[in-house]
Design a protein around this nucleic acid. Structure first.
Lengths: 229, 229
DNA sequence: TAGATTGTTAATCGATTAACAATC
DNA sequence: TAGATTGTTAATCGATTAACAATC
């Protein structure tokens, strides 16, 4: 579902859409059929006005005076985020993190299908990782000629990250989730999302210090705590 | 190092500080002793003006006409983010993801020390995870009376996430890195950072669709690709 | 109908970018 | 000194929040 308004959609709005989707699934389970933006605010912690604004980029999904039909809204958001169809994903890196990702049940639940796992370590190539066989990263392009995955996950050490990105892009991947602490160079049209544990912990570490009274001019974090990233 | 200006420090600025730190480590390795904000822009992809602005919250670190002394700047940023001292961290959840985190070398490199691992599954309690013994989550408060960790990582299934958060907070933890796809309720003063693989992949999935020409009014992503999160 | 709640416009807020005087 | 580059102020940009007319 494309934006209907022609306005730019903030990436933060897309992230929140994924959060709404998750909470709507909960509501479906609880057999709640209708919800207002105000009561969704109490669930998610995201302001009602922001919820309505986020949806407005894509159309009208509620009824004034009534609210939103839970399952209809959930399906609409799934369609917007393409969570209503299978997305094929390649994984580069069969280390600890790669293993955790292959075993993560959340991916299947969101219709994300890991179709191949690659590594460059000959000690690992040919072995199994759960139900997947680890393939030689040199065969990535060839393999993806068949698989046609559009998303790649990089879970390799920093030094290997750019090479992994280049291989993925050469194979037609246009969206990369990067777990390596590296700044990837990619051509226009390729989106990279970085996940950095250390960066997250650095922010938390700074926050701790600001609580310790070391910091007289503590920044105002009053509303950060309950906030969904 | 507290903010010296009394201005609020944007969280995004703290995240970028962690990125600068990583690149400065690289420069030290390459025996580069001085760098300007402009040449750092080419390394990190973050605009020079933003780099200078981010630093300005904390003081003056460069010399006009010259640039920044690499190791001095790196040490200053480490001090700001408290990466110059050991931070003790508790981990709740000894599943696949927990195992990957315990084995992740990046934590030690940033002086983050995992001091205890907890689980509520009696099949796991008492077993070893790498060099750590898995402890009963019921003992968390007691254990932390000794350990005094200020940071907690939640790597449990969604249903157990709020309970894990409550246990961590009761034990004095004031900063939480949450990998569970749940919105945690925490009291004021406790900071939560959420890491959501599925959310990241949802954004990527949307981006893919916007490339497919399904979307005539594609939002402007022209400068997103090379950007550091 | 009266009350509730949406979708959207306008106002506010905050972060990024640009420009430049100060300074090495 | 002349050239380079900082730190900071002001301008721009974009996202969030508030307000409210439309509508069920």
């Amino acid at each position: 579902m494309p934006p209907t308004t022609g306005q730019r959609v903030p990436i933060a709005a897309l992230e929140r859409l994924a959060t709404y989707h998750r909470h709507l699934l909960d509501l479906e389970q609880e057999r709640i059929t209708t919800i207002s933006s105000a009561s969704l605010e109490t669930h998610t912690g995201i302001p009602a006005a922001q919820f309505r604004k986020d949806l407005s980029y894509f159309g009208e999904f509620g009824k004034p005076g009534v609210g939103y039909e839970v399952s209809h809204l959930r399906e609409s958001i799934a369609r917007i985020l393409r969570m209503d169809r299978e997305q094929r994903v390649l994984l580069v890196g069969a280390g600890n993190l790669g293993a955790a990702l292959v075993g993560y049940p959340g991916l299947k639940e969101q219709r994300l299908r890991l179709v191949a796992v690659f590594d460059n370590n000959y000690a690992k190539i040919g072995r199994r990782l759960w139900d997947m066989q680890i393939l030689d990263v040199a065969t990535l392009t060839e393999v993806n000629r068949e698989m046609r995955a559009g998303i790649g996950i990089i879970a390799v050490p920093r030094q290997a990250a750019q090479g992994a990105a280049d291989a993925l892009i050469a194979a037609g991947v246009r969206a990369i989730l990067n777990f390596a602490p590296a700044t990837l160079r990619v051509p226009p049209g390729v989106m990279v999302r970085n996940v950095s544990f250390v960066q997250e912990l650095a922010v938390l570490s700074y926050h701790l210090a600001s609580l310790d009274g070391e910091d007289v001019t503590t920044p105002d974090y009053s509303n950060v705590e309950n906030y969904e990233v």
